[in-house]
């Protein structure tokens, strides 16, 4: 059985919104340590994954490993019935094909309960090598979203060049070209509070060409986190990570475009 109580529905709503256009259905894997998910898009180009650690829920109970097959369109529709501040309780009783979602309004005067039919999905897992990237960039997720949105008006792919001084995003299309350079920065705003900053750590300069259609899809996770981390290694897939407050993360992997 599974019983997991999440303090704010908004977290789950944002996670589902940031995945549902990439993957139509997949298993939620539940264990003692939390709820995780990994699925590729149909064309084998992008992989989406998330982890919500057990300590992000209060309480969290899962006494054995479970794979719960979910259709994202259904989950998205049902989560629209939850208020952002509602508490969400996710419940699964062993040997059933139903997942229950209970939404409790903050004043406790409204409790809604929805049941979702689970699917039997046989999923294939990719093993992703744990290796230090040649370059790790941390930047404002809003800035990253803006760059992807701006450059898709020029071309279908972006070349990301990361060097010690900063990160350059360039795109070329039939009608012209454009580039945006984000310099490494550590700014402090008027109140002495650290403003979103860009940091670049690297062992090698990296250059990757990537599809802007996919990157724009990934930026749907930007409302979850002020920052995005890009792990890049030459001739390897890009890994983008958005933290989900301090309870987990969403990660996307995107295969690069390869020179013919």
């Amino acid at each position: 059985m599974l019983e997991a109580r999440l303090p704010a529905a908004s977290i789950l709503k944002k996670i589902v919104e940031s995945i549902k256009d990439l993957v139509s259905q997949a298993n939620f894997d539940c264990s003692e340590s939390g709820i995780s998910f990994q699925a590729m898009d149909e064309s084998n180009i992008a992989l989406s994954s998330f982890l919500l650690r057990a300590d992000g829920f209060d309480p969290y109970r899962c006494d054995r490993k479970l794979s719960l097959g979910i259709r994202f369109a259904t989950l998205s529709k049902i989560l629209k019935c939850a208020g952002n501040d509602d508490v969400v309780v996710i419940r699964y009783a062993d040997d059933t094909d139903i997942l229950s979602l209970v939404f409790e309004a903050p004043d406790n005067n409204r409790i809604s309960e929805f049941d979702i039919k689970l699917l039997d999905i046989s999923s294939e897992y990719l093993s992703i090598p744990e290796q230090e990237p040649e370059c790790k960039v941390k930047m404002s997720s809003a800035e990253f979203s803006r760059i992807c949105r701006d450059l898709i008006t020029i071309g279908s792919s972006v070349v990301i060049d990361a060097t010690k001084s900063g990160v350059k995003f360039s795109s070329t299309g039939d009608d012209g070209s454009g580039s945006i350079l984000i310099k490494q920065s550590a700014s402090v705003d008027g109140d002495g509070k650290a403003a979103p900053q860009t940091t670049v750590e690297m062992s090698e300069p990296v250059s990757l060409e990537l599809s802007l259609k996919y990157l724009n899809n990934f930026t749907k996770a930007a409302p979850l986190s002020e920052y995005v981390v890009m792990n890049m290694t030459n001739d390897s897939p890009l890994m983008l990570q958005f933290d989900v407050s301090d309870i987990g993360y969403i990660r996307y992997f995107l295969a690069p475009q390869i020179k013919d």
Binding site: M40, S43, N44, I45, A46, L47, E124, Y125, L126, S127, I128, P129, S157, E209, S211, S236, P237, F253, A255, P256, Q257, I258, K259, D260
Partner: peptide, 14 residues
Amino acid sequence: TSKQGRLDSFFSSS
């Protein structure tokens, strides 16, 4: 010109 790579050529499936 460049062509889109696929993830399964980078990661092994299990």
